[in-house]
């Protein structure tokens, strides 16, 4: 089944009021993994990601009756998740700004750099360490574009930013990550 058709089925199930709980579970089944990954890239710890993910789904279910389907369900849900993650980071001051290390960056960094021959997993860890140095909005842009491969039109709806600004932001994020990895002599 195509994603759009599945979204329509989920919405009909929830909005008709016949069996909303089944609709809620279908929606969570469809979106929990990509949302969890997106949120986890922002907040880093599983416990924080769990908090934000639960809040995201609660907000989605409480407002889905008012969802006017001007955008796709996928875009709408990612928008809520991005805002929830952003609010959580700001509230808990757990955002790792550029040159301001995140809470587990040291551990990952030392683990990654201590090995001269890096395997695929260590390179991925290094990428996540580098992401820790990005400002939160830039991190969101990088996550949506690089990991979720979302197109700029959708990203623009999710982050409420112009496509041009998003392209520039992604460009800067990639450059910062490259510079970080180069500075660790990984290239």
């Amino acid at each position: 089944m195509m994603a759009a058709e599945k979204d329509e089925q989920i919405l009909a199930m929830i909005k008709s009021g016949g069996n909303p709980e089944r609709g809620y579970r279908m929606l969570m089944d469809a979106y929990q993994l990509p949302l969890y990954r997106h949120i986890r890239r922002m907040v880093q710890s599983h416990e924080d990601a769990d908090d934000v993910l639960q809040n995201t789904f609660l907000k989605v279910f409480r407002n889905i009756a008012n969802f006017e389907e001007r955008s796709s369900l996928y875009t709408w849900i990612f928008k809520i998740a991005s805002n929830e993650a952003f609010t959580f980071i700001k509230k808990n001051n757990r955002h790792a700004a550029f040159f301001d290390k995140g809470e587990n960056a040291d551990e990952l960094e030392s683990r990654s750099v201590s090995t001269s021959q890096l395997n695929g997993e260590q390179i991925r860890e290094m990428l996540h360490v580098a992401m820790e140095y990005l400002p939160v909005r830039q991190k969101q842009v990088f996550s949506l574009r690089y990991f979720e491969e979302m197109d700029y039109r959708q990203m623009s709806a999710v982050l409420e930013t112009s496509e041009g600004a998003l392209k520039a932001s992604f460009h800067h994020a990639v450059k910062k990550i490259e510079d970080f990895i180069k500075s660790k002599n990984l290239y």
Binding site: R40, R41, G120, Y146, F147, K175
Partner: peptide, 14 residues
């Protein structure tokens, strides 16, 4: 952009 980031190696580290 000139990046050598490989989109194929995007699995998460957690």
């Amino acid at each position: 952009i000139g990046s050598r980031l490989d989109p194929a190696g995007k699995n998460e580290s957690w």
